[in-house]
Write a protein that binds this DNA or RNA. Structure first.
Lengths: 346, 346
DNA sequence: TTTAGCACTCTCAACCTTAGAGTGCTAAAA
DNA sequence: TTTTAGCACTCTAAGGTTGAGAGTGCTAAA
C-alpha cells in the first residue's frame, strides 16, 4: 500500500465526511464546490482516480461519484479521524444521571445503553460486568423448605448470585447460618485459584457448599450467563442501509445469536487494553453478518476484577468520531461505577 | 354486524388460512381449486362480495383477490380459530428444559423468550415477574465500608433486591446482623399494607432500615424497574410486511419505548384473568405502532404474589392458532415456576 | 502539474405496453 | 331462489424504451 500525499488524505477525509452525512456517492465537482477547494474538479478527479486504484475508494457504477471502501474507512479511522468529544454540558448531565443510578447495576446498564444510543445515533450493546477474577466476599444460606436452601453469594465486585440448592440432608437455619459464617471467614477474598482447599473435613455441610461455590466460580470464569443490554435499534433502522430487510436481519442476528456476539467480541478485543476503543469495520471479510456494518467496542471495568463490553453497532458509514468518543466516555463512566462499587464493598 | 352463514364462515376461514400462509391476496378460483369446494368460483365470489360489504374482507386493488381486514381477523380469532396445540413431545422437551433452569429467574426468562419465538415464529416479549403484592421474607445487612451497607432484601416470590445504603452513623457488622435478624422476625410475610408500624423506637438503626424497606416496597408496587426479555426479531424481520423499513421501526419501537409497551400491556390486559390469552389485532385503531401487527399476550404468575406478561408480536397475518397456544403454554410453565419458587421459599 | 473541454458511460425516473389475474354482472340453468 | 357459465372490464406487475443528467477519464493546452 503506497503512501498517500497530504492532498489525497484531505480528499479522502472529505469524501468520508460527505458520504457519512449524505449516504450518497461523492463527485469531484461537488467536493470542490462544497468545501471551496482551490484546485479544479479535474485535479480532484485525478487524485480520486489514484485513491481508487489504491483501494480506498470505489465507484458503485461507471459514472457515479466515489464511495469509500472498507479499506478507505479503515484508513480514515486510523489516521484521519479526529474524535468529536461530547460537549462538557452533555457529559455533566450524563455523569449526574449515572451518579443517581449508582446503586443498581441494572440501572447503569439501561442508562448506558440509552445514552450511548442517543449520542452515537446507532444501536448500543452492553454486556453486564462479569468477574473475570471473581473474588469471594460473603455467603448467606437461607432455609426455605426441608432440604431446599437459597444460597446468596456476594462477590467483591458487588455482584450477587442467588442459587437454589437441594442439600443431601436437612439442616436447621442455625446450622446453615453457622456454616455460612464459617465459610465466609474462611473464603474471604478467595479467587478461583485459591479455591482449592475445602475448609473442613469431608462429608460436612461446609464441604458440600464449598463445592457448589466452586462450581459457581467456574461458570463465572467462563463468562457465561451475562445479559446484553441494548438500545437504539430504531435509530439504526432509519438509516438507508437497513431499508433492505435482509440487512436489518443480519444486524439483529448479532444481538440475538449469543455465540456470534461472544466470538465477535472476544476476537475483536484480543490484546486490547481496558479503555482502548476497537473499531471493526465491515466485518473485515471474516464476519459476513457485518457486511455494511461496523462495530465500535471498548472494554470497561476494573482490571482483574469485573469487566464487560460496551459498544455500538451502526452502518459502515457511521460517524466514527462521535461513536468512538461516546463509547470511550461511557466505558469510562462504567469503569468508574464498577471500581467504586468494588471499593465500597471492601 | 349481520350474522354470517356457515358457508361464509367457512370461506372466511379458508381465506385467512391461505393468506396467513402465502401473504398474498386470495382469489375465488384459487380457493375452489385448493380446497376442492363443491361450489363454483362464481358462488364463492358472491359470498366474498358479501363478506367484503360486511367489512371482513377487502381488495387491495380492483382486481386482486381478497385479504382479511382487521375485523376479519378478529372474527376469525374469536369464532373460527382452533388452537394448534404443540406436540406432546415438544411440550415434554420444553418443560424439561424449564426444570433444569428452575433455579435462576434470568434463565427461565431467556428460555421462555427463546422457546416462544421458536414456536410462534414471531418475536417474543416477556417481562420479569413483578411482585404486585410484595411479601417480605428475609433481610441481610452486609457492612462494606464505614457507613456504607449492602442491603439484600429477599421477597417470598424469590426476588432478591440489592441496594447500597449509606447510614446516618456507622455500625459494626454484629449490630447490623442483629438488626437484620430482628427485622426479619418482625416483618416476615409483611406486605405493603401491613408495613405501617415500625418495629422499634424511633431513631434506631432498625427504624432507619425499616423506612428504606418501605420505600423499596412502594417502588415495587408501582411495577417499576422490570426487564424485558425478548427473542425472535430475526424471524419476524424475514416476513414481507417488515421489508418496509418503516414498519420494522414501528415494531421495534414497542420494544424500545418502555412507556409504550407498558400502556399497551396494561390497557390490553385490563380485566383479563391470569392465564387468559388476549389478542390485540392491528392496533385496533388506537395504536398506530401496531398497524399491520398483532400482539398475543397473557399474564403469568401467581395471583396476589408475582406476575408478569408474556407475549408475541408478529405480522397481522400471523398464525394465531399456533401463537395463542404457544403463549398459553409458556405462560402456564412460567406460572408454575413462579408458584414453585414461591412455595419452596416459604 | 494543473486545468479546460469534451466525448462517453451509466443510472434513474418517466413513460408506455402487454399479459394475466380476478373481478362483478348478466342471463341461463338447476 | 340459488347456482353457474360466460364475458367484458379493471387494474397491477413486469418488461421495455427513452431522455436527462451526473460524473467520469482522457487529451491537449496552459
Amino acid at each position: 500500500m503506497e503512501r498517500l500525499s497530504e492532498r489525497q488524505k484531505l480528499i479522502l477525509g472529505l469524501i468520508v465526511q460527505e458520504y457519512v452525512e449524505h449516504a450518497q456517492p461523492v463527485g469531484s465537482k461537488h467536493l470542490v464546490d462544497q468545501f471551496g477547494l482551490d484546485v479544479s474538479s479535474a485535479t480532484v478527479r485525478n487524485e480520486m482516480l489514484e485513491l481508487t486504484e489504491s483501494g480506498f475508494l470505489r465507484q458503485p457504477f461507471t459514472s457515479a461519484g466515489r464511495v469509500p471502501t472498507e479499506e478507505g474507512f479503515r484508513f480514515f479511522v486510523g489516521e484521519l479521524m479526529h474524535r468529536q468529544e461530547l460537549p462538557a454540558s452533555t457529559k455533566h448531565t450524563i455523569s449526574h444521571q449515572f451518579y443517581q443510578a449508582r446503586h443498581e447495576v441494572q440501572q447503569w446498564m439501561r442508562l448506558a445503553a440509552s445514552v450511548l444510543a442517543a449520542q452515537s445515533k446507532a444501536a448500543s450493546l452492553i454486556t453486564t460486568p462479569k468477574s473475570q477474577q471473581a473474588r469471594f466476599k460473603h455467603l448467606e444460606l437461607i432455609l426455605t423448605a426441608g432440604r431446599q436452601v437459597l444460597m446468596v453469594l456476594v462477590l467483591e465486585s458487588g455482584q450477587v448470585i442467588q442459587q437454589m440448592l437441594v442439600l443431601k440432608e436437612a439442616f436447621s437455619q442455625e446450622k446453615l447460618s453457622a456454616s455460612a459464617s464459617q465459610l465466609t471467614d474462611h473464603l474471604r477474598g478467595a479467587t478461583i485459584s485459591t479455591l482449592t482447599t475445602p475448609p473442613a473435613e469431608t462429608g460436612t455441610l461446609a464441604e458440600e457448599i464449598f463445592k457448589l461455590i466452586k462450581g459457581e466460580f467456574q461458570a463465572l470464569e467462563q463468562g457465561l450467563g451475562g445479559e446484553v443490554y441494548h438500545d437504539g435499534w430504531t435509530n439504526v433502522l432509519a438509516e438507508p442501509e437497513f431499508s433492505d430487510a435482509d440487512a436489518a436481519q443480519r444486524a439483529l442476528r448479532v444481538l440475538e445469536e449469543r455465540p456470534l456476539l461472544d466470538t465477535l467480541l472476544t476476537q475483536t478485543m484480543t490484546g486490547a487494553e481496558i479503555g482502548g476503543v476497537q473499531v471493526l469495520i465491515g466485518g473485515e471479510g471474516r464476519w459476513e453478518e457485518l457486511n455494511d456494518f461496523s462495530l465500535v467496542v471498548a472494554r470497561y471495568g476494573a482490571p482483574e476484577a469485573a469487566s464487560g463490553y460496551v459498544g455500538v453497532l451502526g452502518p459502515i458509514r457511521m460517524s466514527y468520531g462521535r461513536a468512538v468518543s461516546a463509547v470511550d466516555y461511557v466505558a469510562g463512566l462504567l469503569s468508574e461505577m464498577v471500581t467504586e462499587s468494588l471499593n465500597t464493598h471492601d
